[in-house]
Design a protein around this nucleic acid. Sequence first.
RNA 1: GGGUAGGUAGCAAAGUCUGGCCAAAUGCGACAGACUGUAAAUCUGUCGGCUUAAUGCCUUCGGGGGUUCAAAUCCCUCCCUGCCCA
Length: 396
Amino acid sequence: MDNKTNKLLERNVEQVLPSKEELAELMEKRKIKLYYGIDPTSPNLHLGHAVQLRKLAKFQELGHEVILLFGTFTAQIGDPSGHNSKRETLSKKEVDENLKTYKKQASKILDVSKATIKRNEEWLAEMDLEKMLKLASHFTTSQLLKRDLFQRRLKNNKEIWLHELFYPIMQGYDSVAMDIDLELGATDQTFNMLIGRDLQKEYNNKEKFVLTTPMLTGLDGRGMSKSRGNTVNLTDSPQDMFGKLMSLNDKLIPEYFKLCTNESLEKIEEVKNKLEQGNINPKSLKVELAKKIVTLYHSKEEAEEAEEEFNKVFKEKKYPSDMPEFSIDSFQKDTMEIDELLVKLELASSKTEAKNLIDQGGIKIDGEEQNNWNKEIKIEKGKVIQRGKKTFVKLV
RNA sequence: GGGUAGGUAGCAAAGUCUGGCCAAAUGCGACAGACUGUAAAUCUGUCGGCUUAAUGCCUUCGGGGGUUCAAAUCCCUCCCUGCCCA
């Protein structure tokens, strides 16, 4: 087997179906057509997507035909990945809004000028009922219900909606519409990707391969999801990226090195050993990790700066050099009670919350802890209001 | 179509029989504080809103209506979900 192909199918690959060898064989015989699909259910791509995108880029380097598919139609239905009940469906408008900068975000990793970009609304939005039914007739309900998350719901007596059952079929049809040799995806997509394999066989009489990459765990050790806020977005500023990675759960350091950087496997082994032996402060490994990742998506210089900035704010307890600013032009008066001010600055959602924060010593103004909610604060430029350790707002 | 169990705060779940002590136990989670390395673990506090800051007021237990001095709790009605039977 070609060494490059071999490497490509080894690193950060969980599984190749039906088999790695057969895929490698095909890839040596001819260039293959492969795709990775993302549903624009939120405006940001994160490090989880990057695992697949980086893999996709490697295929591109070897000259294979790469398609990046935006699931503009499927995003409206929503892959039923929620643990129990159906997800809110998105409107076309919301999807388009989310999609706006996807291409640009993906271009941080992939050469988008050489890749084909498609949207699955091209074929799914036009499908009529007759075609849909024909498509659906390739599967039995029990085949579709095999999916682990449906099984879980059945076990818990939770509802499964009919349209949720259709999701894998729609995703599966993408493979047929694009006449695909291989689909990339994280392991949670295995089921959906295999449905596409069945369909590709029946419609185009073609063997479709499925390659799964490991799921990247969220920063806090739980499943990655935007609602938990445990993601690192590709568009995050160097400072944010660095900061978020510093809050990474120690246990995940090797995983992040492996899935998010280009470090050699030997190096990663070394990191693992150091952690196990406990003769290194994990924090210093995280600094290294954070710098590597920031370099990947920004630049080496910005990574250095982000580190300095981090030390400044969290070691020396100084203000960050860049903080969210709030213009005082919209204020009607020159003084304001603290609780009211906090609501105005959106540091608290209600005065009650603001008061609780103040009571607990969580609010500082110009570095001074506040403990009296009805104290009148002068509204003047340059004043810095701090909530907790990480949130600052500067009046300008 | 028939039967039956349900719908409670971000989620899970108690409370309903025996109406008031229910802004609603508990767990998870979120936020703030202590300790730290913006790690983990642990400990403390808060988690509907408003103000006169009081053992005060207003809105909330699927929707609507009713009984009552008083309703998450009782009655009527509508909507939704699970399970079983057909």
